[in-house]
Computed example of a mutant assay.
Amino acid sequence: MKRDWELVRKILLKIEALETIKRSVVCAQDIEDYDEENVSYHIYLLEQAGLIEAAVQKHHNTGIRALAYNLTWSGHEFLDVIRDPDIWQQTKEGAKKATGFSLELLRDLAKGLIKKKIEEHTGIQL
């Protein structure tokens, strides 16, 4: 199964929208237009990457079942740079042109776009 960066962003935004850590969790049913297997797999990947805290169970017969319940510091940092829809769109377009990219590259590309935007609005070079 391939990583779906749009799904990654949706999961992170959904987790952030939780009012408190204890209130709820994000599961496959919370993400529209994606099946349970795909969402659970991406929650698993996000937990492996250190972006979220999650409960992950691996079953031989049924695959991965995962519930996400909190962003980590790194998860908040990554979401902050990809939150803006325009920045996210530009980041995806830039990454596609590179034909290969990683989480770190996406983060760095989005940060660069945000810095450019700040410089344009303030005239202060970062």
Rank of each mutant, 00 (worst) to 15 (best):
L105R: 05
D4G: 03
L113E: 03
Q90S: 13
E36Y: 11
Y34W: 05
K22N: 11
Y34T: 05
Q90W: 02
E77W: 14
Y44P: 04
G75T: 01
D108R: 10
G75D: 02
E16L: 11
I124V: 15
K2V: 11
E104S: 15
T91M: 02
E119C: 11
M1P: 07
K111F: 09
T72I: 09
K111P: 06
E36H: 15
I118Q: 08
L103E: 05
Q29K: 08
Y44D: 01
N61P: 02
Y44M: 14
M1S: 13
H60Q: 06
E47T: 01
K14L: 01
K117S: 15
L106Y: 03
D4A: 05
Y41Q: 03
F101G: 13
E77T: 14
A98M: 11
L46D: 02
L45W: 10
I82S: 09
K96R: 07
V56L: 07
T122E: 05
E6W: 01
D80W: 07
V26I: 10
E32T: 10
H42F: 06
D33M: 13
K96E: 15
L105P: 00
H60G: 04
E77L: 14
V26W: 00
E77A: 12
L12H: 07
R83A: 12
K117I: 00
D35M: 05
G123H: 04
A98F: 06
S74Q: 05
I82K: 02
G63E: 03
R9H: 13
V25P: 00
E36I: 04
E19D: 08
Q29H: 14
K10T: 03
K111G: 06
I31A: 08
L109W: 00
K22T: 08
N70H: 13
L103G: 07
E104F: 15
A54S: 13
V8Q: 07
W73V: 14
R23Y: 05
L71G: 09
L106F: 11
L12E: 00
G123A: 08
K97T: 08
K2A: 11
L13V: 09
G112C: 04
I52S: 12
D4L: 08
Q125L: 06
